[in-house]
């Protein structure tokens, strides 16, 4: 097991490298020197000495690989992601809480998706070709077809039109800037349900289909008949054998469900005005605040990759066949 984990972690290194290159490319993509955009945005005239200092710090006069090296080594050794020009603060000041909230939303959604999708998937497979199964299938397809942001808009409209409430945000106004406390955490929980449902819909629909297909495959396997021939009751049989085996691909499905959640949360958060990485990334891209944007893309990608790693380890833990390979 330890060897397996070690191997997976070694595999991560090239992945992280590629991600950092992509994130750096995003920083470099906009035309022109970003210092130029800094100067053009600054309200007062910028001190030439300050500009030179920045030029030196990011190695702007040096070849591109030196710039990359300065950027990545700053992140790894000092946790220095550069400065946000729009906010005029170090990037690292801005991102951690939002990254944390992104994680909270994604994890809650993941839990929601599993809790809803697994029982429905089991029901749908066991009651194959009944009205209930067809209903679940059709609702699932519709859930897959509605873009997150559209669902967010529609739910917001319904809340506004029929309940006179403006939903959105992750905190009540009085808690937005407050320090963390139990009250703030509870306030967060009371706001979390809407984004979790919106984000979870597509994933739930997808996982119901995966679970149903897996379980149908497993239900027709011989070991199920063998267990039945041993005198096991139908319910115990179902949960001990085929459901247990059908859960394995579901755990490995986490490897793509989690990135999709983080990905989807970007847009939903913009629509719902949540204090996560999505709106910050959106604003920074519009303002060409590239160090902030690049860092966000880097960190969100790293986060999803860690999620994938965890799902791999989890899978190896529950499925004894994996470690053997």
């Amino acid at each position: 097991m330890i060897w397996y984990i070690a191997r997976r972690i070694i595999y991560l290194i090239p992945t992280l490298l590629i991600i950092s290159v992509i994130a750096f490319a995003v920083i470099q993509l906009p035309p022109g020197d970003f210092l130029a955009s800094l100067i053009s945005k600054a309200e007062e005239t910028v001190d030439q000495a300050q500009v030179d200092a920045l030029r030196e710090r990011y190695g702007l006069d040096e070849p591109i690989y030196v710039q990359y090296w300065k950027w990545i080594s700053g992140i790894i050794t000092r946790g220095d992601f550069g400065d946000s020009f729009e906010w005029n603060r170090p990037v690292s000041d801005l991102i951690w809480e939002r990254l944390g909230l992104t994680m909270v939303i994604s994890l809650f959604t993941l839990a929601f998706v599993w809790i809803v999708a697994i029982p429905i998937g089991i029901y749908s497979a066991v009651k194959k070709y009944t009205i209930g199964d067809y209903l679940v299938t059709i609702i699932g397809f519709i859930g897959l077809a509605i873009p997150n942001f559209l669902l967010a808009l529609v739910l917001m409209y319904i809340a506004f039109r029929y309940f006179g409430q403006s939903v959105g945000g992750l905190f009540s106004p009085e808690y937005i800037e407050a320090d963390w406390s139990l009250e703030r955490a509870l306030d967060l929980l009371s706001h979390l349900w809407l984004p979790v449902i919106i984000l979870g819909t597509a994933g739930t629909a997808a996982l119901i289909r995966v679970m149903r297909a897996n379980l149908l495959d497993e239900l027709s396997k011989l070991y199920v008949d063998a267990a039945r021939a041993r005198g096991l009751s139908e319910l115990k049989l179902l949960f001990k054998y085929p459901v247990r085996v059908a859960l394995n691909p579901l755990v490995s499905a986490m490897a793509w469900v989690f990135p999709a959640l983080v990905s989807g949360s970007a847009i939903t958060s913009i629509v719902l005005n949540l204090q996560t990485t999505g709106p910050l990334l959106y604003r920074s891209l519009q303002a060409q605040d590239m160090y902030l944007a690049g860092s966000l893309i880097l960190l969100v990608s790293v986060l999803t990759i860690i999620g994938t790693l965890i799902s791999d380890i989890l899978l190896a833990w529950i499925d004894p066949r994996i470690q053997l390979q």
Partner: peptide
């Protein structure tokens, strides 16, 4: 059963 490979649970 016929196939001992698949009549035992894999997990």
């Amino acid at each position: 059963f016929q196939e001992p490979m698949s009549s035992l649970s894999p997990v």
